Simulated scan of single mutants.
Amino acid sequence: MSREERYQEELEARIAKHGMRLKKLFGKANTSIVKEITDLYARYNESGQDLVSLIYNASRLDQIMDSIRTILYSLRDEEEQQLRIVWGEEYKRSVYHHLYFLEQDFEIGVALPQVNFPMILAAIEKPWEGRHFSKRIRLRTDLLAASMEDVITQAAVQGWGVTRAAKEITLRTSESWSNALRLARTELNRAAAQGQSTAYQANSDIIGEKEFCATLDKRTSSQCRKADGKRYPLDYDTPENPGREGERIPNHPNCRSYWRPVIKSAVLDRLQRERSYRIGKEERGYTSARNYEEWAKAKGIAT
């Protein structure tokens, strides 16, 4: 297994960890919304009013939905904030880890690009699937709010009890969490791929191209399988040179593809000559290290 493949496996573990944090956020929001529904039924029981009349009173329905939207918008803001944080962390991790892989695999010194907040922000805000980062989250929140309103009106018309209504609300929240996790997986894979491109572009004297690598198994999409092994310029699939549909990373929601560097043949020939003449690793700028943490410390990179 290559270092890049191992990185993808570790990325999946980080995505799963983020998914559990998301699940807690959605669970907290769901509890608050179910309480709103339970209180609604309690008011209905106390008033003796027909539930349909109670809910279809325009001002009453607006009041209920305002409360639910407040909960959902708070959830949206927390989700966006957390995803922005882990996106930036993944981007930075990808830049430096893939430079570490390059140096260790070829025993040659690499240039370290400066990774700062404006650079990360510009990468995050790059549109994907025609929408910016924030809009993709906000669209899903609006859809969830509309779904919640449908549940409330259906409960009134069909005479659902509070248990059935709460179950339907929880089902909608769970579906939205699954969609949020899918978005997070897609976004974090995009962060990793953009980090790779940044690392490779900073070392264009060593790397000539980058190769599309699909994670090949029974879940591999047809477009990723077709793109597997194709080579592209270092600036391809970046804000300056956007990738073509079907040949970009991510290619689709839940995409697991990644890049692999293609070392220039002249560099490989030079390295072979230097090794033949016993030119030491340190003279080639190589930093010997047992692991990434040791390498990062030697390079002055904060971990």
Rank of each mutant, 00 (worst) to 15 (best):
T163N: 12
S59P: 01
A192Y: 07
Y236R: 07
Y232G: 03
M65L: 13
Y200S: 07
L183Q: 14
G243I: 07
E46I: 13
H18W: 10
L112G: 03
A289H: 14
A202K: 07
S276T: 15
E36C: 00
Q272V: 05
G208F: 02
T287I: 15
S265Q: 11
E78P: 00
L181Q: 07
I15L: 12
S178E: 12
H97G: 02
P250Q: 08
Y200K: 01
R190C: 06
R172I: 03
L61I: 06
A165G: 03
A180C: 05
G300C: 10
Y41V: 01
R225F: 00
A296W: 08
P239Q: 00
R190F: 10
G195N: 07
I33E: 03
L102F: 04
P242L: 06
E80V: 15
V151I: 15
S134G: 09
R131H: 08
A166I: 09
I124Q: 08
H132P: 00
T303V: 15
M148A: 09
E36R: 10
Y236W: 02
L40Y: 02
R273Y: 03
R284G: 14
Y73H: 08
S257T: 03
L268F: 07
I263K: 02
E274F: 10
H98P: 06
D237P: 10
W259H: 10
T163G: 04
C255A: 03
E46D: 14
A145R: 05
P118T: 00
E209V: 04
F101S: 03
Y258L: 00
T31I: 04
E168A: 14
R138A: 08
S47I: 02
N254H: 11
T38R: 11
F101H: 10
W259Y: 11
N203D: 12
T173E: 04
H97F: 14
P261H: 08
A165P: 04
D150M: 13
Q194D: 14
I37W: 01
